[in-house]
Design a protein around this nucleic acid. Structure first.
Ligand SMILES: [Mn+2]
Ligand SMILES: [Mn+2]
Ligand SMILES: [Zn+2]
Ligand SMILES: [Zn+2]
Lengths: 139, 139
DNA sequence: TAATATTTTGCAACAATGTTGCTTTTTTCC
DNA sequence: GGAAAAAAGCAACATTGTTGCAAAATATTA
């Protein structure tokens, strides 16, 4: 596990530092997405608030994580699939926010649907966020 | 025009006040959505910042406007169609953010697409935000 | 219309979130 | 191990959002 983290950092030409290891480990040990606040709380005792911001920004720039926009206006982040490396994001999946447990998941197998726009509009990206009750909470 | 504003407020059991008239007029005179910041700037000389927040919240509660989540995490608001009144929102349209002019539009004629979720998930709401270049900017 | 009850506003104070410059520390590379 | 480069910490600040309360405006009733 620990080696995997170093691998990810090196693969992205990032130096291996405590905060990066810590924050990356948070993502790897959690299925869903993490809100900025969660990360700050869990990493914040050991690392400065500013460092958390800069680390997350670095990870987004490198294509290691991606931001998920939600209705309550609190950014969440989740790990990208491997083919996002290099600063270009290719996340063609949708996101699911559970109103019951509050978790946010990447539904990697659900492809973003086609959207027929009126004439004149051109598309560069489509974001789909579904709200509802997740698998675990429906049991 | 001014009578229309009063009508909307009265229909929603809201008392007619300066800030509500002003903010509502901003929405009626603009095709697209307004960011909170825009509203604060345009209404802020005359009204307190807190009043702007409370007015927008009131409008959302009443179903006069709805919030649009965007990737840059700045809430935008747009007028609801008439059938939203009463605090229940029924906005089954998608939103379009133009990367060129920065405007955000409700595409009222584009119905939210069906999304096939994995077994176990249940849906209560679907948000679709498309980014690209708008009609006006493509000309 | 005037008096009263209700609602809204502004203000102040505060909390939370995000940003920047600069110095010190850590990491990388030779 | 030492030099160069990168990251972290710190402090200060800016922006955004929230709350309680007194004053003002609006609605209601007589
Ligand atoms: Mn995702
Ligand atoms: Mn809309
Ligand atoms: Zn759940
Ligand atoms: Zn445009």
């Amino acid at each position: 596990m620990h080696e995997e983290i170093k691998d990810i950092l090196k693969r992205n030409n990032l130096s291996v530092t405590g905060s990066r290891e810590k924050i990356l480990s948070l993502f790897l040990s959690k299925a869903g997405a993490l809100a900025h606040g969660d990360i700050e709380k869990k990493a914040g005792e050991k690392f400065d608030r500013v460092t958390v911001y800069r680390t997350l920004q670095t990870f987004v720039d490198k294509g290691i994580i991606h931001a998920i926009p939600t209705a309550d206006n609190s950014i969440r982040y989740a790990l990208c699939k491997d083919d996002c490396s290099g600063g270009h994001h290719h996340d063609h999946h949708i996101h699911f926010v559970c109103n019951h447990c509050g978790n946010t998941y990447c539904l990697d197998d659900v492809v973003t649907p086609e959207v027929r726009l009126p004439n004149g509009y051109t598309t560069s990206q489509i974001e789909v966020v579904v709200e509802g009750t997740c698998k675990a909470c429906n049991k």
